[in-house]
Nucleic acid binder design. Sequence first.
DNA 1: GTCCTGGGTGAGCAAGCGCTTAGGCGAGCG
DNA 2: CGCTCGCCTAAGCGCTTGCTCACCCAGGAC
Lengths: 204, 204
Amino acid sequence: MTAEAATGEAWGDITPDAARRLVIAAVEAFAERGYHATTTRDIAGRAGMSPAALYIHYKTKEELLYQISKVGHHRSLAMLEEARDAGGTAAERLAAAVRVFVRWHAEHHTTGRIVQYELGALAPEHYREIVVLRRRSEDAIRTIIKDGVTDGEFDVPDVSGTTLAVLSLCIDVARWFSPSGRRTPEEVGALYADLVLRMVRQNG
Amino acid sequence: MTAEAATGEAWGDITPDAARRLVIAAVEAFAERGYHATTTRDIAGRAGMSPAALYIHYKTKEELLYQISKVGHHRSLAMLEEARDAGGTAAERLAAAVRVFVRWHAEHHTTGRIVQYELGALAPEHYREIVVLRRRSEDAIRTIIKDGVTDGEFDVPDVSGTTLAVLSLCIDVARWFSPSGRRTPEEVGALYADLVLRMVRQNG
DNA sequence: GTCCTGGGTGAGCAAGCGCTTAGGCGAGCG
DNA sequence: CGCTCGCCTAAGCGCTTGCTCACCCAGGAC
């Protein structure tokens, strides 16, 4: 599956077709140049439409950003909470969470970049809504780590700080990952899951 | 030392006074809202001058960004190469590198944010120059890790990938760190140095 | 006193921005 | 057929942007 096919697939449930093409165009443009450097003319042009057509489907440029950010955050949160609630040891669940979260940030690094780095461009009320989702993501990771400490699997002196570091490590993948690089999303996910386990595990 | 005093201190050698005030204003504005969302009127206003005064000291808004990025990258690189060339075991040198690099990104998180997240706004020739410095930073960390593997101190299956992860972890501090948070730059540096050592060490 | 120079201002230009308006056009339906 | 409705465009409005221009002024050299 190519990166572009993955981008398209992730927004498959948006109708009509023109609205979906606009989101996909916006994701690419925002990820490439940043929200503020992207013009509505650029987005419309990439979607093969006139600038005015954008405003038939979205009220403002910021609403496009909000849709992208909201969908991305919900998907992230779902992955992490699923990993938290799965069966298995804390180590298995933490490894699964990191693997899937990292793989998503690599595969959808365009969306990931918007989700992680364009928060400040959201309207205040949208920002407040998104922050709630982010706190829940953090809670999911913290819970897994806490479980591991309780069960004696993990040796983590600073649970909150380590949670922050784990999340931070995963998130930054969206910044540096390139599909033309040497590593596939799966490989990065596996590598990072291993590194994170080393960070938290008891080592005799 | 307050964060603002630290910001001022870092640019102490720029003259005349107005030029220094402009860089400091630009650092704050770029870090707060991003390069593209910052206007030259905003920068000049923060520095207590008229918009036209900016152009007496800098040819363009991009030149201001370039100066900030260049100084920040040189300082980062100097820290990492110093740690690489210091005495001691690989573990000691890696811990020192991470500690100082993280502390800098926390203390100067405004400059750090520009250094790490506004690369794309640089003019092409400036971008090419900066990328060279970034590669050298990566090399410094990779060398320390390789030394540790050679000496048998470290157990690292994927040296390049782990180098990437270590740098990534440090860099992302600039994104989330807030001086009003619970942790001081020193504390974050110590925590991260410990986590990184856990990632690379032999564990019996 | 006169002149030059470096650092400053107020006003404003050309271009590009987000967004709106007036209108066109084809598919579905009575 | 004629009508509506969803989707689209050409043109452009009002505003902000990065940057420039003509001019000002204090302080040192002669």
